[in-house]
Nucleic acid binder design. Structure first.
Lengths: 199, 199, 199, 199
DNA sequence: TATGAATGAGGCTTCATTCAT
DNA sequence: GATGAATGAAGCCTCATTCAT
C-alpha cells in the first residue's frame, strides 16, 4: 500500500507543489494576465500538459490559489476573533497575523493584493473572508459596548487599510525590514484610528 | 463664426474624450488586460483604427490615463502640503481631497487602484507622486517637531491606508454614501493612527 | 489666360511632381510595400487626400512611375536600335545610355530594379520594353549576319546582365564613381561576351 | 523499432519542411510582402500558430530561408575558389554551379533574386557571400597575374551579371530549357567579358 | 501518464482609401 | 481643391487548451 504512495503521490504532489509555487511567484511578479501557462510550466519544470492534469484551466489554477489563501486567512482571522480575547488583543493578534503572513510568504501576499480584484467577484456569498472577520470583530465590539457605535465596515476598513498599505509600501521598497517588527506599532495605530472614528 | 469650432473641434476632441471616458470606465470595471481595443472602440462609438490617431498603442493609452491622473493627484497633494497649513489641517485637507476625487469620479479612482501595479514601475524616478506628497508631509512634521520621530513612510502608509481601504470597501459595496461625508472621521482616524505609531 | 496657369497648373503640377519625386525616392529606398501613403505625403509635403487627386491608388501611382520610366527606356533603346548604327556601335550606345540613366537618377534606376518583379506582369504584351529592344538588336544582327547565329534572348541577357549587375554593385557600394566612366569597358565586355556565346 | 522515428520525427520535421517549402514557393511567386502567414500556413497545410513553433516571426522565417540559401551558396563558391583550379576553370565551375542551383530549385533561386534587397542589409559584415567569393576569385587572379589589373568588383559584376540575368530571363520565359545546357557558353561569355574589361 | 506540438480564436496594430469640413 | 481624421479590412502574433504519441 505504501507502494502506491511511493510511486504516484509524491510525483503528482511534487508536480502540483511545483506548479503552485511557480504560479504564485509569477502571478505576484507579473499579475495574472502577465503570466502564460508556458511560463508557469517552464518555471515549475513540468510540461504544459501535465499542468492540466491538476487544474482544468488557468483560471481555475489562479482561483484555487487565491481562494485557498484568501479563505484560509479568513478562517485564521475568524479563529482569532472567536478566541475569547478582548477587542484590543484580537486586533493586535490580527495585525500580527497579517505581518506574519507577509513575512513568511510575501509573494503569496503580493499575489493576493495584485489579483484580488479579478477573483473577489467569484467568492461565494456567505464565505468567511478576512474582511468579514474584521468587520464582525468590530461589530461584536460595538454590540458588547467595547466600542462606541460605529459602522463596523468603517472600522474594519481602517484596521485593514493600515496593515495592507504597509504591505504595499514594503513591496515597493518604501518600507524595509520584517513587517513583524512593526506589528505592535501598527496595532496601536489601528486601535487609535478606530477609536478616533467616533468623535 | 463659431462654426469652425463647432464643426471641427468636436470631431477630434470628441473622439479623444469619448475614448478616454470609455477606457477609464472599462479599465476600472475589468482591469487593463480584461479590456480589448474592440471593447473601448465599441463603447466610445468609434472605429478601432480611430483610436490610434490619438494614442500609439493600448499600453500608451492606459499609461497616459494613469500617469495623468496619478501625477495630477500628486501635484494637488503637494499643493496642500506646501500651503502653509499645520500638519493636522494638511492631513485633513488631503483626506478630504481623496474623498472628493473618489466621489467625483469613482471610476477613475477605481481605475487607479486597479491598474497601479502595472503602471507604477513606469513612473519616472523623481516624479512627485501622491505617496511622495504624503511621505514628505509626515517628514516635514517630524522635522518641525510637530510629530515625534517616526519613519515618514510608515506614517504615510497609515494615512493612505485609511482612505484607500475605505475607497476599496466602497467599491465593493461594504461602505455606502458619499465618502466626503466621512472625511472628518477619516481625518481624525488618520491623525490618531499616526500619533499612535510612537509609543 | 495666364492667370489660370499661374494659379492652378503650377500648384497641381507642383503637387504631382513632388509626390512623384518622393514616391520614387522612398520606393527606391524601401521597396513598394515598405512605403506607406502617409510616408509619401509627408515627404512630398502634401496631404494624403491630395495624392488621390492625381492617382487613384497607391498601386496606380507605383505603376505609373514604373511603366513610364520602363517604357520610356524601352523607347530610347529602340531609337538607338533603329538609328542605323552597326551592332557594335548600337550596343555601345545602349550601355552608355544605361550608364547615363543610372548616373542621372540612380534612385529611379534603383526603383526600377527593386520593383520590377511586382510590375512586370502588368506590362501589356506587345509593349516595347528595354529587353525587347536589346533582344531585337541582337536578333537583327544575327539576321544580317553581323553575328553568328545565337539565341537573341541569350545575347540580350548577357548584355543586360553586364550593365544591370554593375548598377546593382554600385547601389551596394561595391563599385564607386560615375558608371559613365566605365561605359566603354562595359561595352567591350558585353560585346566580347556575346561574341563568345558562339564557339 | 523504427516506429519511433516514424511517429515522432515526421510530425515536427514535417511541419517545418512543409512550411519552408511553401514559404519559398510563395515568396518566389509573390515576394515577401505579397505573402501572408495565412497563405503559407494554408499551402503548408498547417495552422498559422504552428508556424510560430519553428520561427519566431514571419521576418525571421524569411531571413532564415534567405540567409541559409545565400550563405550556403557563398560557401560553395568559396570552395570552388579555393579548390586550386585555374581562374578559367574556377569561373566555369562557378557558372555551372549557379546553373545547377537554378535547375534544381528555381523557386529558391527566384526567391533569392526577389527578396535580396530586403535581406541583404541584414547580412553580417564579414560573412562570405556569393559576391565575395567571385570578387575574391577575380582579385586572386589579378594578384597572380592570370588577369590584367582590373577592379575585382567590376570583374565579379560582369561574371555574375551574365548568369543572373540569364536566370531572370528564364524566370520570365525569355529563355527556355535547362540552364545547365548553356553553362559552357555562359562560362565562355563571362571569361571573354572579364578579359575585355582591360583594353 | 507525461509530453509538447498543433490548434484556433482573438488581440493589437497598420494602412489604403474615403469623406465631411 | 485641400485637408487629415475616420474607417474597416487585413495582417501578424499570442496563448489557453487539446491530443496523438
Amino acid at each position: 500500500m505504501f507502494t502506491y504512495k511511493w510511486n504516484v503521490m509524491p510525483r503528482s504532489a511534487g508536480v502540483k507543489t511545483k506548479v503552485e509555487r511557480a504560479a504564485v511567484d509569477l502571478f505576484a511578479a507579473n499579475g495574472f494576465d502577465g503570466v502564460s501557462i508556458a511560463d508557469i510550466a517552464a518555471m515549475a519544470g513540468v510540461s504544459q500538459g501535465a499542468l492540466y492534469r491538476h487544474y482544468p484551466s488557468k483560471e481555475e489554477l489562479g482561483w484555487a490559489l487565491f481562494s485557498t489563501a484568501y479563505l484560509r486567512t479568513g478562517e485564521e482571522l475568524d479563529r482569532i476573533r472567536t478566541g475569547g480575547a478582548e477587542f484590543e488583543a484580537a486586533v493586535t493578534a490580527m495585525i500580527a497575523h497579517f505581518c506574519a503572513l507577509y513575512d513568511e510568504d510575501s509573494a503569496l501576499f503580493r499575489f493576493m493584493l495584485l489579483t484580488q480584484h479579478g477573483f473577489l467577484p467569484r467568492i461565494p456569498s456567505g464565505s468567511r473572508t478576512p474582511v468579514d472577520a474584521v468587520v464582525d470583530l468590530v461589530g461584536d465590539a460595538v454590540t458588547k459596548n467595547r466600542l462606541k457605535p460605529i459602522d463596523p465596515a468603517l472600522g474594519a476598513a481602517v484596521i485593514m487599510g493600515v496593515i495592507l498599505q504597509c504591505a504595499t509600501f514594503h513591496i515597493y521598497g518604501r518600507l524595509c525590514g520584517a513587517l513583524g517588527a512593526r506589528a505592535p506599532a501598527l496595532a496601536r495605530a489601528s486601535l487609535a484610528a478606530v477609536a478616533a472614528l467616533t468623535q
